[in-house]
Amino acid sequence: MPELTAEDIALAGEYVLGTLPLGERQAAARRIVADPAFSREVARWEARLDPLAEEVRPVAPPTRLWAGIEARAYGSPAPAGSGLWRWLAGASALSAAFLGAILWFGEPLMPTQGRMWVSDMISVDGSVRLAALYNEKTGEMRVSMGGSEPASGRDFELWLIAGEAAPISLGVMPRRGQAAMPIPAALRDRIANATLAITEEPRGGAPGGVATGRLVAKADLRRI
Rank of each mutant, 00 (worst) to 15 (best):
P182T: 10
R214E: 14
E201S: 04
R188A: 06
T212F: 00
E200A: 11
P184K: 05
A217Y: 06
T195E: 01
A185E: 14
A206W: 07
A180M: 13
M181L: 15
G204R: 12
G209E: 04
N193I: 04
L187W: 03
G208Q: 11
R222K: 15
E201R: 00
Q178S: 13
A197I: 02
K218M: 15
I198P: 01
A179M: 14
M181G: 00
I191F: 04
T195W: 09
T199F: 14
T195N: 10
E200P: 04
L196G: 02
L221D: 00
K218V: 03
V216E: 00
I191M: 15
L221A: 04
I198Q: 04
A206T: 10
A180Y: 06
A179G: 07
R188V: 10
L196D: 00
P207A: 13
D220C: 06
A197S: 13
G213E: 12
A185V: 11
T199W: 08
I183C: 01
P182R: 06
P202G: 09
R188G: 08
I198K: 08
L221H: 00
G204H: 06
P182F: 12
P182I: 08
A194S: 15
D189E: 15
A217E: 08
A180C: 11
M181D: 02
T195V: 14
P202C: 12
G213N: 10
A179C: 03
A185P: 00
T195L: 10
A197L: 08
A179P: 00
A217D: 07
A180G: 10
V210Y: 01
M181Q: 09
V216L: 02
E200F: 02
M181F: 13
I191Q: 03
I198S: 03
L196P: 03
A192H: 13
T212S: 12
G204W: 08
A219S: 13
D189F: 05
L187S: 05
D189N: 13
A206V: 08
N193E: 15
M181K: 12
R214F: 05
I191W: 08
A211Q: 02
L187H: 08
A197C: 02
E200M: 12
A179Y: 07
G205K: 09
L187K: 03
L187E: 02
I198V: 15
A180W: 02
R214H: 06
P207H: 02
V216W: 00
A219T: 03
G205V: 10
A211L: 04
G213I: 10
R188S: 12
L215V: 07
V210D: 00
L196C: 06
A197D: 06
E200C: 05
R222L: 15
R223H: 13
G213D: 09
A211I: 02
A186T: 12
R190C: 07
I183P: 09
I198L: 10
Q178I: 09
R223P: 01
T195K: 04
L221C: 00
R223S: 14
R190Y: 15
A179T: 07
P182G: 05
G205D: 08
R214M: 08
R214D: 13
A219H: 05
A179K: 13
G213S: 11
L187T: 04
E200L: 10
M181V: 15
G213W: 01
P202I: 07
T199P: 09
A185L: 12
T212Y: 01
A217G: 04
V216G: 00
R188H: 10
T199C: 11
I183D: 03
M181P: 00
G209T: 10
R222Y: 12
A194Y: 01
R223Y: 08
L196Q: 03
A180V: 14
I183S: 05
